[in-house]
Amino acid sequence: MHKIALFTLAAIIAPLGVSAATIAAEGGGPYDVTSDTLFTGIVTSSGDGAGSYILDFFTSGATQEAVANAAVTEATINSSFTDLSMSWIDGLALNTIVSAAGVDQLTTVFNGMYPVQQLRFDWTDSVNGAGFRFDVTTTIAAVPLPASALLLLTAFAGAGFAGRKRKTQTA
């Protein structure tokens, strides 16, 4: 019974991507950026030293596009965590899409090419017990009206005009 509880705890903690001095975060993941348009998390340091934190996000529709912006407070960058960097990583190929150090926000686009992404924070040193809050806000792009729908509407209008013309000729 104890082995099952230990295995369950390990399965819950492992996907969080916690390493080095990083521990807690509110939430877990993966999160759907098209339904959760505002996500707030907290990362805390369990000791002095380097660390990283990874959180998974995805978009539910392969053709639906969403712009996600991750933001932390500027004071966090300058005081509690040395060399804090943020990265959006392709969750399928694990290639970095966009990354920056010393910034308070970083934007990415979820689309058919990058439907699954990881938000990663890295730092070279931290103060024991320090933490930072981060927000991920998403804006979902309007779905364009496909050209086939426009053609279908034109066909209906043409059929309506043809039927009306035929009706006036017979009367």
Rank of each mutant, 00 (worst) to 15 (best):
V103K: 06
G49Q: 01
K3H: 13
S35E: 12
S35L: 10
V98W: 06
F58T: 04
L150T: 00
L16S: 05
P144F: 05
L92T: 09
P15Q: 09
A62E: 10
A21R: 03
V98G: 03
G47R: 13
V143Q: 13
A93C: 01
I4K: 14
M1K: 10
T44W: 13
A159I: 13
G41T: 05
A25F: 09
M113R: 14
E74H: 08
V72Y: 02
G51A: 01
L106E: 06
S99I: 05
S79Y: 13
V67A: 08
K167H: 15
D56A: 12
F134W: 03
L145I: 15
L55R: 06
W88F: 13
L94R: 10
L145S: 03
V72D: 03
A68N: 03
F134G: 09
V103S: 06
T124W: 12
K165P: 01
D125S: 15
T63F: 03
Q169Y: 15
V127L: 10
A75T: 07
D36S: 12
L150C: 01
A71W: 04
P115N: 11
G41H: 02
Q169E: 11
S148W: 14
T170V: 14
G49P: 05
F81P: 03
D125K: 11
T137K: 14
D32G: 08
I77G: 04
A10I: 04
M1H: 03
A24Y: 15
A24H: 07
I54N: 06
G163C: 03
V98T: 15
A70W: 00
